[in-house]
Amino acid sequence: MLSYDYIKCADLNLAFQELEEGEQVYPLAGGTDLIVGMRGGKFAAKTLIDIKDVPELNVLKEDDQGITIGAAITLNEVTGFTPVRENVPILAEGCHSVGSYSIRNRATIAGNICNASPAADTAAPLYALDAVINIAGSGGNRSIPIKEFFIGPGKTALNKGELVQSVLIRKPYPKGKGIYLKASRTGSVDLATVGVAVQRWGDQVKIAIGAVAATPVRAFSVEKAVNEAGEKRWADAARLVHEDISPITDLRGSREYRYHMVEVLVRRGLEQTMGV
């Protein structure tokens, strides 16, 4: 059993104060990554601030701005939220790909991105949706695009004293289909060997890929070919993705297989979203 302090926090300012002043302070929401990481020695927490009951973090709403998903909202709640299912089903697919049903009853979208695994299943859809991360802290609030939030494996743009308050999917929503295609070893509860999000935006496409670099990446080479050069041969377009990624070999797959699978899934994603 590990030793640390636990603070149940219902006031955001109290959380900022703890995060600002304390050493090794971690916000606790679902805990599904945090507690595993603490057990494995990845996180040496001295204090956990339980932020689940902070009202500002429990927002799940759609308004003029778009869809706001508070940091304490679980993945199953996101998946079940009608505006998400209707307008950005790709995000529901990404959330649904994380862990098992019981894990998703606790795990949050904010936790998934704060863990900053390049393989995070919600990340690629958020990249393809140009999601905005609303960050709150003692020094004030700021909002940054998702692609600036991920800095490296396990590293985010959060400064000391800050936490993710919510994830915003801005209006206008993409026009057209989006799909999250995941390759994994078992096809069941498993980490992504690669994850590919392809989101149609009218006659344009945005493509994001997980588990192929230090952070999730956009497939700009492919996007450029499709969006600017009007490439309609999806196989040719997909081949360009090799320029956008730099996968490694690990237990889940070799570098070669990842290159190959990304190409296949990008092509399939284009076929399924942009039409054959």
Partner: peptide
């Protein structure tokens, strides 16, 4: 280790007792 917390199945190994 799954139990029902407020009616929902959760992994009790990943939850703190104080929660």
């Amino acid at each position: 280790c799954i139990v029902l917390l407020d009616g929902k199945p959760v992994n009790s190994c990943l939850i703190l007792a104080v929660e």
